[in-house]
Computed example of a mutant assay.
Amino acid sequence: MPAAKIGAFVVAALLALYLAFTVQRGWIMITDDSTVAKALGVALLALPIVGAWALIAELLFGSRMQRLGKILEAEGGLPEDTLPRAPGGRIVREAADAEFAKYRAEVESAPADWRSWFRLSCAYDAAGDRKRARRSMRKAIALERGR
């Protein structure tokens, strides 16, 4: 199992444990006689609900992204990692930006193809734009799922 997957499972397990403890403390506060404690207990129960939603959403995003990556790999459609790197291992930004234009043009010519959006996401990630990389990957997932 890859180290990234193990790390994700460890973080998810720790978050789940934290959320369980938060629910327990919230329940203790709700069963207290004090009105203030009850109000804080109810507010404290909202945190695990939001946390569980975020955890599930991120795990689903990761598994869907991995599934699409495996499909592209089997088809031979994954972008090759040929970009030059700095001595520290980071991709040279100028090279990533130049490569990015190719994938943006691919999306513009085939906006309904999830494969082009996946490759664009990889290009955004290589260029260091994580926000747009995630948005493009969500678009690829939605297109592949028929939405």
Rank of each mutant, 00 (worst) to 15 (best):
G76V: 12
L44R: 05
M65P: 02
E80R: 14
A57P: 00
R138K: 06
R85Y: 02
W114Q: 04
E58I: 02
E58T: 10
V11L: 15
R138G: 09
G41H: 04
R90M: 13
A46G: 10
L59V: 11
F21D: 09
V36T: 13
A4F: 12
L59E: 08
A13R: 01
A112S: 11
V107F: 01
A127P: 04
V92S: 00
G51S: 02
A110P: 01
L45G: 01
D32S: 15
R130N: 12
G7S: 07
L120V: 09
L14W: 00
P84A: 01
G26M: 00
A74Q: 11
F9L: 15
Q66R: 14
L44K: 06
Y18R: 01
V36Y: 13
P84C: 01
E99H: 15
F100Q: 07
V50W: 04
R145T: 03
A52M: 08
C122I: 10
L14F: 06
I91K: 05
T31I: 11
A112E: 14
K38T: 07
P79N: 12
R93G: 13
A98M: 09
R104V: 05
E99K: 12
K38E: 11
E99M: 13
D81I: 12
G88N: 15
R145G: 15
S109R: 13
E99R: 15
K70H: 13
E94R: 06
A112I: 02
A12T: 03
M137N: 05
K102C: 09
L40S: 11
A8V: 10
L68F: 02
A96F: 02
D113V: 06
C122E: 15
A112D: 14
D129K: 05
A57Y: 03
A12R: 03
F61P: 03
W117Q: 03
Y18T: 09
A95S: 05
A57F: 07
G62H: 10
A105W: 10
I56L: 04
L59Q: 09
G41T: 06
S34R: 03
E75K: 07
L78D: 09
A12L: 01
E144L: 02
S136D: 06
V107C: 06
G41C: 08
T31P: 07
A16S: 10
R138I: 06
L120D: 11
E73D: 14
I141H: 00
E75H: 07
M65S: 15
F61N: 04
A39N: 09
I141M: 02
P2Q: 04
G26R: 02
I49P: 00
K131N: 09
R130S: 14
I56N: 03
S109C: 00
R115Q: 13
I6G: 06
P48N: 07
L47C: 04
Y18H: 02
M137L: 11
P79E: 11
I30H: 10
R119V: 05
Q24F: 10
D97G: 05
W27F: 12
G76C: 03
